[in-house]
Amino acid sequence: DAPDEFRDPLMDTLMTDPVRLPSGTIMDRSIILRHLLNSPTDPFNRQTLTESMLEPVPELKEQIQAWMR
Rank of each mutant, 00 (worst) to 15 (best):
D1C: 15
D1P: 12
D1G: 13
A2S: 09
A2H: 08
A2T: 12
A2R: 05
A2M: 14
P3H: 05
P3Q: 04
D4L: 15
D4F: 15
D4N: 14
E5N: 13
E5L: 12
E5T: 11
F6Q: 02
F6T: 02
R7Y: 12
R7P: 02
R7C: 11
R7Q: 05
R7D: 03
D8V: 03
D8W: 03
D8R: 03
D8S: 03
P9W: 07
P9M: 07
P9T: 04
L10W: 11
L10Q: 05
L10N: 03
L10M: 11
M11C: 15
D12C: 15
D12I: 07
D12W: 15
D12G: 15
T13L: 08
T13D: 05
T13S: 10
T13Q: 08
T13W: 08
L14E: 01
L14S: 03
L14R: 03
L14W: 06
M15N: 02
M15S: 01
M15Q: 00
T16P: 04
T16R: 13
T16D: 09
D17A: 15
D17S: 04
D17M: 05
D17H: 06
D17P: 01
D17Y: 06
P18L: 04
P18M: 02
P18C: 06
P18W: 05
V19S: 00
V19Y: 06
V19E: 01
V19D: 00
V19F: 04
V19G: 02
V19C: 06
R20P: 01
R20Y: 04
R20N: 01
R20H: 04
L21I: 04
L21R: 01
L21F: 03
L21E: 00
L21K: 00
P22L: 05
P22I: 04
P22Y: 05
P22K: 03
P22N: 01
P22Q: 03
P22R: 03
P22V: 05
P22H: 04
S23A: 06
S23L: 02
S23M: 04
S23Y: 04
S23F: 04
G24S: 04
G24E: 01
G24T: 02
T25V: 15
T25I: 15
T25K: 14
T25F: 15
I26S: 00
I26A: 01
I26G: 00
I26F: 04
M27I: 07
M27T: 04
M27G: 01
M27E: 02
D28C: 08
D28E: 11
D28Y: 04
D28H: 03
R29H: 06
R29K: 12
R29M: 07
R29T: 04
R29Y: 08
S30K: 13
S30C: 13
S30H: 13
I31P: 01
I31C: 09
I31W: 08
I32L: 07
I32Q: 01
I32H: 00
I32R: 00
L33T: 09
L33E: 08
R34Y: 10
R34S: 11
R34K: 13
H35L: 13
H35C: 10
H35A: 06
L36N: 00
L36F: 06
L37D: 10
L37H: 11
N38I: 14
N38A: 12
S39K: 07
S39E: 11
S39R: 07
S39M: 08
S39F: 10
S39G: 07
S39Q: 09
S39H: 10
P40H: 12
P40L: 12
P40W: 08
P40Y: 09
T41D: 07
T41C: 12
T41S: 09
T41W: 15
T41M: 09
D42S: 04
D42V: 02
D42C: 07
P43G: 01
P43T: 01
P43E: 00
P43Q: 02
P43S: 01
P43V: 03
P43A: 03
N45T: 15
N45R: 06
N45I: 06
N45V: 06
R46F: 15
R46Y: 14
R46M: 14
Q47H: 10
Q47E: 13
Q47F: 08
T48C: 14
T48L: 15
T48H: 15
T48G: 11
T48V: 13
T48N: 12
T48Q: 12
L49R: 00
L49T: 04
L49F: 04
T50E: 10
E51C: 09
E51S: 11
E51F: 09
S52G: 12
S52Q: 13
S52V: 10
M53Y: 04
M53V: 05
M53A: 07
M53Q: 11
M53K: 05
M53T: 04
L54P: 00
L54Y: 02
L54A: 02
E55P: 00
E55A: 09
E55I: 15
E55K: 11
E55V: 15
P56W: 08
P56C: 08
P56R: 08
P56N: 09
P56L: 08
V57F: 08
V57K: 03
V57I: 09
V57N: 05
P58H: 10
P58L: 10
P58A: 09
P58N: 09
E59R: 10
E59I: 10
E59T: 11
E59L: 11
E59F: 11
E59H: 12
L60F: 06
K61G: 06
K61R: 13
K61N: 06
E62P: 01
E62M: 13
E62L: 13
Q63M: 14
Q63A: 15
Q63R: 15
I64E: 01
I64N: 01
I64F: 02
I64V: 07
Q65S: 10
A66G: 08
A66Y: 10
A66H: 11
A66V: 10
A66D: 13
A66E: 15
A66W: 09
W67N: 04
M68Q: 10
M68F: 11
M68W: 13
M68C: 12
R69K: 14
R69M: 13
R69S: 13
R69T: 12
R69N: 13
